[in-house]
Amino acid sequence: MNTLSARRRHPLAAFVVLFFALAMIGAAYATLGSSTASAAGSSTYTADQIANGQKLFQSSCSSCHNMNGQGVQGSGPSLIGVGAAAVDFQVGTGRMPAQQIGPQAPSKPPVFTQDEIDDMAAYISSLGAGPAVPDPALYAADPNNAASVSNGGVLFRSNCSQCHNVAGAGGALTDGKFAPSLKQTSPQHIYEAMLTGPQNMPIFNDNVMSPQDKKDIIAYLLQTRTGPNPGGLDLGSIGPVSEGLFVWTIVLGLLIVFACWIGAHTTKASRARVAHFEATTGKDATDND
């Protein structure tokens, strides 16, 4: 019998199979699951795009936002004048279509392809003028540009960190709402969020925060993501809470292990060993020299 089938009744066999199955599913998801693609910035849409977008809108969005985007009281707000950027952000991060009622729509894997998102954005922007999908040059931030990063840091700490935390780890708002973590958000979506103020996030229009400022903020966020953690393991970057937990669990445990080692009597010889000693040498084992 070969080694594997010889062990098919091993108690751990089920766990091994489960582990492999999970690993395969995970790998498949990672490769085949859609990633956040970037849209080409465009404020001119074709009639086809608008028509296609309207179709998509009516089938997927109108139940909450009404057939012509004017909104349903208590359900979805009016989308007239929100602009293409908002659509690209909301649908591109998977927040829309919202799946269940809750304090806030969380980001999820997007349901639509980028082309479909572009079409819906075309339709919504046709309903009323609003911020357009930004040109890629606007969010092409360079995390190695020290001036950009440091200016972005000052701006981020003044305008953003009170909700999103100084490292972009996210934070709590009222009544179960939250400012999400920015550690995985694409530069385009960060720009769009600042521009359109999704849900309870304030709008940072270009008069109070210039496009260069926005780019600097993105540069800062990219740098915190990719920058080193020079002192070692960063314990999640949430500050003294994780440091304190770490010290009270891992470190205290380790020190107590050492303390127990110091006081333990495990060096004592077993009774059998003592008996053997006394038998072979004829000496009294308890007579310590």
């Binding site: 700490r157 003044s158 960190s161 009170q162 909700c163 999103h164 935390n165 100084v166 780890a169 996210g170 934070g171 709590a172 400012a179 949430i238 500050g239 003294p240 809470v241 440091e243 304190g244 937990l245 010290v247 009270w248």
Partner: peptide, 14 residues
Amino acid sequence: DQISAGSQPDWYIG
């Protein structure tokens, strides 16, 4: 005039 969400003191002042 700046602040970070999730600001805590060291554990013993928690």
